[in-house]
Nucleic acid binder design. Structure first.
Lengths: 204, 204
DNA sequence: AGAAGAACTTACTCCGAGTAAGTTACTCAA
DNA sequence: TTGAGTAACTTACTCGGAGTAAGTTCTTCT
């Protein structure tokens, strides 16, 4: 006869198992029965706590998102100036993903880059994660822009979206090749690529 | 009593219906029965011709990929110099996607950006599409690099991946906002952002 | 002790991918 | 022009996984 636990503890236990299994097999290949079996609990209990498969996945995503966003934000805020902030943000991003490979799997597996507009509630939450990053990037872009220049909102958005897309794709690329360049190397190349442009944007 | 058609004609008919329905509802929300009903044929026939849902989706993707890649390649090759090639490629990319919204849906809905590493055969084919673009971008990056500078392979890859990611994310962003900036505007901003950096990359 | 509610399970339904085994229309050789 | 052979097509399933109805058992608190 198995010992019962209170709800909060069980939820945590389920979440940890889900994070691990989603990380290993991806969203599609993970069944709720798998998670239930891993925790040693029956499926309906998970439904009671998380509502649906999407709900469970979202809960995993939320945790990881907070960790990642905090890590990057902290690095950015700790930087002495605008140029360093951008670089530090890049480094923090790639290092976090190196250090949390399973987190990464969850984030990309139709969590972060499965940007499918019509692919269920998970996609919506994913957009929320990304929106937070875009906001952070937008702030940095503003700080980095040539002083005294007027640059319109569209341009800032275009740049922020580009940087977001670039870092996401780079992360995926790095995770799939045998000997990826170091976070510092990637961050520096990105920095070199963008720095000049950010300071010399023509007016519209 | 329904008229039978030969295989090639039927395959084309199925492919067109699939492209439309996948475009409207996305991969997940489309069932093989839906497609079969749309064509007015039974499900096993589709399985006979395309093997699986992934197979059908892949076939759609292949067609679209060829169109998109051709369009962008043509624009790039027609440009008079390296700087224009990059710009022309960007414009062609965004214009194509504006003109083929349903194609676009298929491409991103875990087709192009549903980059899920473990999300089935479709993901693998998607990588193939992207690889072709990366190759094209790599060639352009080489042409655009500061003459006389030695830049290592890693750096070129990093830059190409960044540009690929940036354009993909920009495409998604544009498709989701009410009044997106014109292809020309986006292309020019990207060009301005990258041009300086490409020509002043430090050596490693 | 025993009532009340939280934690948990059994035993389903339903839907969609994929398939086995057959049936019907077309075609071409005699 | 007919019937053998084959390509086109269908009916009627299986199977697995998401989600649920209706309970049962443990725990706590008076």
């Amino acid at each position: 006869m198995k010992r019962r636990r209170n709800r909060a503890a069980r939820e945590r236990e389920i979440l940890e198992a889900a994070e691990r299994i989603f990380g290993e097999r991806g969203y599609q290949r993970t069944s709720m029965d798998d998670v239930a079996a891993e925790v040693g609990v029956s499926k309906p209990l998970i439904y009671q706590y998380y509502g649906s498969k999407d709900g469970l996945f979202l809960a995993c995503l939320a945790r990881l998102r907070i960790q990642l966003l905090d890590t990057v934000s902290d690095a950015v805020l700790a930087a002495p100036d605008a140029e360093d902030a951008l670089y530090a943000g890049f480094v923090a991003w790639f290092e976090f993903l190196d250090d949390h490979p399973q987190a990464w799997s969850v984030l990309i597996d139709e969590g972060m880059l499965g940007m499918s507009p019509a692919a269920g509630p998970a996609a919506a939450a994913t957009d929320e994660v990304r929106a937070a990053f875009i906001e952070l990037i937008t702030a940095m872009v503003r700080m980095n822009l040539a002083p005294g220049r007027t640059v319109d909102e569209d341009e800032i958005q275009i740049i922020a979206q580009s940087i977001s897309g670039a870092t996401e794709r780079l992360a995926i690329w790095r995770s799939r090749i045998p000997a990826p360049p170091s976070p510092a190397k990637v961050a520096r190349t990105l920095q070199d690529l963008l720095w000049q442009g950010l300071h010399t944007l023509r007016n519209p």
